[in-house]
Design a protein around this nucleic acid. Structure first.
Length: 449
RNA sequence: CGGAGUAUAGCGCAGCCUGGUAGCGCACCUGCUUCGGGAGCAGGGGGUCGCGUGUUCGAAUCACGCUACUCCGACCA
């Protein structure tokens, strides 16, 4: 993409409504525009990141055996009356009426609808286990939306729903999502740490929140520091095998949010030099809720013995529109965002230091073609701007690698690569630049780990 | 929903106290000169001062009402 032809409205000053760093940087980098309280447009650069985040989520869901579909945003109130939640949900649910004065609502979640789909089509234990998910816009009329897209009223959520014959099956479904989530966050360059969460009236230990560590996190978290560097399950993990050992391995180390923490237990169970008190952003939540919806909505299958069985369900959420700011909170510096390659809007920013100079333009154009041919997602800053302005923009929008080309280096036949994360610079022959970037970038895509 | 604030050009702000019809920086347009860390000079365009009512000869400025947005708290992917 040529920057001169792109839509990238960067700002020098951050709008005063933004308080936290990710919100400021998303506004300054031209990623989002606020439309109302808790309501944002995703501009091209931001949307590109959001899409990459969603793709990773989908890949890992699919890998774990979940199946994608798409449900509507507007739902009929009838389903919610069946489950009893229409009255229970409260002001957070946006209620509306259609032209026939029928009660509708903008979906804050989809347990009822997915259960309705399930009961319509699935009637035999042979069709289980089943996990259906979608990535869809949700609306929750929060009392106080804040922090940009971190807590917005309209937000994107991946919500998966598992159906099993019994508790043991549901447990394995839960573990599959547990593993998929570990991998999902890792692939985005994050450490997503599972923490025991309140499972409400259901009880049991089948509710985990995944938190990303960041200074600006909304909850205080207490964990064993070994969790931060714990190796994640590899790409070839067999999701049809018993995943209990992985779950037990991860959950044997202490990790809890301020709501669940028992500080005495924390100090007793975790060695002093491993006790980590930090702040976390909740980016995912997995939850087993048994027959809470299948029972009132009569989602049953016929078992092997010919008897009717009410299915056990779980739901599993990830918020991509929250993940984007969470990644920024976890990875930025004074100059701007530092994207991990796997979610970066572009992998390389080619900087032409003297646009308009014949030789430099010629060399850059050639490089730009070569970068694209090599499969590298490239933003080409071909604008007629001073070098400083280009560097500042590149740092702000956080492209992982800058390929810098100017008349000075070109005289020697050299280009320069700047690593956004470390600030490291390397000078190399122009002809070697593309191969070098490929070698740097491909492993960091984390699509084969 | 309780508490605290803000609203003047796309963004950041001044002007308001002490009413006289709006200004600065960045951004934008034109020209020239520049060009390795947010360039310089010259010229130019853009605002019913959030909305309404009132006071006044006259309101961005004073009074009252409303709305929107932000922050802190209780709640949530």
């Amino acid at each position: 993409m040529r920057l001169s032809r792109y839509f990238l409205p960067v700002l020098k000053d951050s709008p005063k409504e933004a308080e936290i760093v990710s919100h400021k940087l998303m506004l300054r980098a031209g990623m989002i525009k606020q439309q109302a309280a808790g309501s944002y447009s995703w501009l091209p650069l931001g949307y590109k990141v959001l899409e990459k985040v969603v793709r990773i989520v989908e890949e890992e869901q699919n890998r774990s055996g979940a199946i994608e579909l798409k449900m509507p945003t507007l739902q009929s109130a009838d389903l919610w009356r069946e489950s009893g939640r229409y009255d229970a949900y409260g002001e957070e649910m946006l209620r509306l009426k259609d032209r026939h004065k029928r009660d509708m609502l903008y979906g804050p979640t989809n347990e009822e609808m997915i259960t309705d789909i399930f009961r319509t089509f699935v009637h035999s234990y042979r069709d289980l286990p089943l996990n259906l998910y979608h990535v869809q816009w949700k609306f929750r009329d929060e009392v106080r939306p804040r922090f940009g897209t971190m807590r917005s009223r309209e937000f994107l959520m991946k919500d998966a729903y598992s159906f099993d014959l019994d508790f043991a099956g549901a447990q394995q479904a839960f573990y599959r999502m547990f593993v998929a989530y570990l991998r999902t966050f890792y692939r985005m360059g994050l450490v997503g740490i599972p923490m025991r969460a309140d499972s409400g009236p259901i009880g049991g230990d089948m509710s985990y929140e995944f938190h990303v560590l960041a200074d600006t996190g909304e909850s205080a978290v207490f964990l064993d520091a070994d969790l931060v560097h714990k190796p994640i399950p590899p790409i070839d993990i067999d999701f049809r095998s018993d995943l209990t050992p992985i779950f037990k391995d991860w959950t044997s180390l202490y990790a809890a949010t301020d709501e669940m923490v028992d500080e005495a237990e924390f100090r007793a169970k975790v060695p002093a030099d491993k006790q980590l008190s930090a702040r976390g952003i909740e980016v995912g939540h997995i939850f087993y809720f048994g027959t809470k919806y299948s029972d009132p909505m009569k989602a049953t299958v016929t078992g092997a013995d010919g008897k009717e069985v009410t299915v056990h369900m779980g739901s599993y959420g990830i918020g991509p529109t929250r993940l984007v700011p969470a990644i920024i909170e976890a990875s930025h510096d004074d100059n701007g965002i530092i994207w991990p390659v796997s979610v970066a809007p572009f992998e390389v920013e080619l900087i032409n230091l003297k646009a308009g100079d014949h030789d430099t333009d010629f060399a850059c154009d050639k490089l730009y073609d070569a970068l694209q041919d090599a499969g590298l997602d490239t933003l080409y800053d071909d604008r007629d701007q001073p070098a400083g302005a280009k560097f500042a923009t590149a740092d702000l929008i956080g492209i992982p690698y800058q390929l810098i080309l100017g008349p000075r280096g070109l005289k020697e036949g050299n280009a320069e690569i700047k690593h956004r994360k470390t600030g490291e610079r390397e000078t190399l022959p122009v002809a070697a630049a593309v191969d070098r970037l490929k070698a740097l970038i491909e492993p960091e895509r984390r699509n084969t780990v």
